[in-house]
Nucleic acid binder design. Structure first.
Lengths: 123, 123
DNA sequence: AAAACATATCACCAAATGGTTATATGTCAA
DNA sequence: TTGACATATAACCATTTGGTGATATGTTTT
């Protein structure tokens, strides 16, 4: 169970990877390694400030780190925070190896009397 | 490499799981199985229409399916679409077992002449 | 020093997001 | 039927998001 502060950071990570442009940036960093900012924007049709903002989101989520070398800002992947996402997803792995597990569990965990009827008290 | 149509669906999935309330709904479905809509909203402080909207997002992402039984709409998890997310994340697993791989790859894949200098042509 | 380059940030805008209060629809209970 | 219940949808609103052009900052080149 993640601590509350981890919770907050975790949110930023989920938000960060929700955008395709940012996923593309991460993918690029993963395959080609440390790269200057401008190079990371080549994939998608967008202005330099837009790219810069995406990079900020990724920075705030802890998914990338920067190192300055002359006038270049070299970005590198920090996949660490993705681990939490991976762990969350892992909880669902069992569902796509046998989808009917969900039903089995349902029948197990729910009181049979309630099953087809109205919940005794919803509030 | 996902087909373009898969791509579009994939976006909806990433967006859907970006919201903590929706993740909570999925978690609830995973642990307690098929449940009526109202029950899924118990976790978070929010109105019924808000819940209904979240459920719609999840439906559109293909992450849940509904079955009507009397006046109840019974929601069940469909974790299938999460698989794509899991596969995407898997590409990053190697980075958190040995974080320096990224640097090694960088030195490999980039032209050494370019390394510390300005990229010959960014555009 | 001046010009070019790489990047971030500012000010602004349109669209999307998430929430709210009605309200509509369908089902069960009296 | 009439009323309560479960859910969705409509209409609306505030906030967030992602994009843009302008500009500031720092670095390298000339």
């Amino acid at each position: 169970m993640a601590t509350p502060s981890t919770e907050r950071k975790s949110r930023r990570v989920f938000r960060a990877i929700a955008d395709p442009a940012r996923r593309k940036i991460l993918d690029r960093l993963a395959t080609q390694g440390e790269s200057p900012a401008l190079e990371l924007g080549e994939g998608f049709r967008s202005s330099q400030p837009a790219l810069s903002k995406h990079l900020k989101v990724l920075r705030d989520a802890g998914l990338v780190r920067v190192r300055r070398e002359g006038r270049l800002h070299l970005y590198a992947l920090d996949a660490g925070p993705l681990r939490e996402v991976a762990e969350w997803i892992d909880l669902y792995q069992r569902f796509w190896s046998g989808r009917l597990d969900a039903l089995g569990q349902y029948l197990d965990s729910r009181n049979p009397d309630e099953k087809g009827k109205s919940p005794k008290e919803t509030r």
